[in-house]
Simulated scan of single mutants.
Amino acid sequence: MNNEVIITAALTGAGDTVGKNEFVPVSPEQIAKDAVAAANAGAAVVHIHVRNVETGQGSREVRLYEEVVRRVRESGVDVVINLTAGMGGDLFIDQDDPLKPVDGTDLVNGLERLPHVEELLPDICTMDMGSLNFGEGSQLYISTPDMMRAGAKRIQELGVKPEMEVFDTGQLWFATKLIEEGLIDAPALFQLCMGIPYGAPADPGVLQSMVNMLPEGSNWASFSIGRNQMPWVAQSAILGGQVRVGLEDNLYLSKGVKATNAKLVERAVTIVESLGAKVASPDQARAKLGLKPRS
């Protein structure tokens, strides 16, 4: 059991969710406001994607990240900033001509996924630990071993903490290899991502087996999507991990009741405290995760 639980709020993601819940933040101002609201509700960490303001789709534009981070930092609210570095891995193929990429493809190498990290130097940035059949149809997420090694080396040079996003056991195997190769500094940080088709299923036994595979001394969190988001808060804390909630992964508080990021964090706080644990502050999160103190 984890008695001091770090809550991460994943604010918006890159999925096609904007039309499904009017509270999904899109503009940099909206995303920053949600980050502040989530921090005030109890999140020690905010995980940030940005979106094209006109289309609502996910974006890699550095200027959008810059505005969000600037607004959060200027708010005066203390929160650990975690920027995605997973954008640029999407490959959509023509099923009749697999060598032909189609609309929606945004595929770049490992270093081209990092300009906003280099510019803004967040506390944490994510690294997706492998390629994945991403749901139905012909969409793939591409993250090869060479891409990951190049990205890990550059993130290490920048002094940013990588959060290794693990979607299945083979990806966890490779993540431990990066640690053995010296490309990930201790203490390593894992995010076990459950229930995303077609990665690791949202099954408590699978989560336990993945936790058993983690290198000794690692920090870890896990989450699941949709209706499993809140049960997974309890699962993670009970098994000794940190937790993640937010509109990136789930749009509802209950059936038919649309959520906000702040409301999801509040619900997570209630669950953590009901288990007899405490919610970690940003400074406690920094100490636990081996991050630099706030300047």
Rank of each mutant, 00 (worst) to 15 (best):
T17Y: 14
H49Q: 11
Q30G: 04
V36G: 12
A39P: 01
V53P: 03
I81Y: 01
G88K: 12
A39F: 09
L64Y: 12
G58K: 03
V24Q: 04
V46N: 06
G76A: 10
L11Q: 05
G56W: 10
I81H: 02
N21T: 13
V62G: 01
H47Y: 11
T12H: 03
G58A: 13
G89H: 09
V36I: 15
A37N: 14
G89C: 08
A10W: 06
A9V: 05
A41G: 10
V77W: 00
N40A: 11
A44F: 10
A43R: 09
T12D: 01
I48S: 02
T17S: 15
G42R: 14
L11T: 14
V24A: 05
T84K: 06
V50A: 04
E29K: 15
V69E: 01
V72E: 06
S59I: 07
V53E: 15
T17H: 14
E29Q: 15
A37P: 00
N52H: 14
T8Q: 13
V26R: 10
E66F: 03
A39N: 07
P25C: 06
G76N: 11
S75F: 03
G88T: 10
S75I: 05
Y65H: 11
A32D: 04
G88V: 10
H49I: 05
L11W: 10
I31E: 01
V72G: 07
G58Y: 02
L11D: 02
S59Y: 09
V46M: 07
A10Q: 08
T84P: 00
R63W: 00
N21Q: 13
T55I: 08
Y65K: 08
F23T: 10
T8S: 15
T17R: 13
E29N: 12
G89S: 15
N21M: 13
V80D: 07
A41Y: 11
G42T: 13
T12Y: 02
K33H: 08
S27K: 12
H49W: 08
L11M: 13
G19R: 14
A38L: 08
A39E: 02
G13I: 09
Q30N: 01
H47D: 02
D16N: 15
P28R: 09
V69L: 02
A32L: 08
E22V: 14
F23Y: 15
V72K: 08
R51G: 03
V77D: 02
T8G: 04
N52M: 04
A32T: 10
R73P: 00
G58R: 03
A10R: 07
P25W: 02
T55G: 06
N82S: 14
V62F: 04
A41D: 05
A32S: 13
K20Y: 08
E54S: 14
G13Y: 07
A37M: 08
V77T: 15
K33V: 01
V45Q: 11
G42C: 12
G13S: 12
V69Y: 05
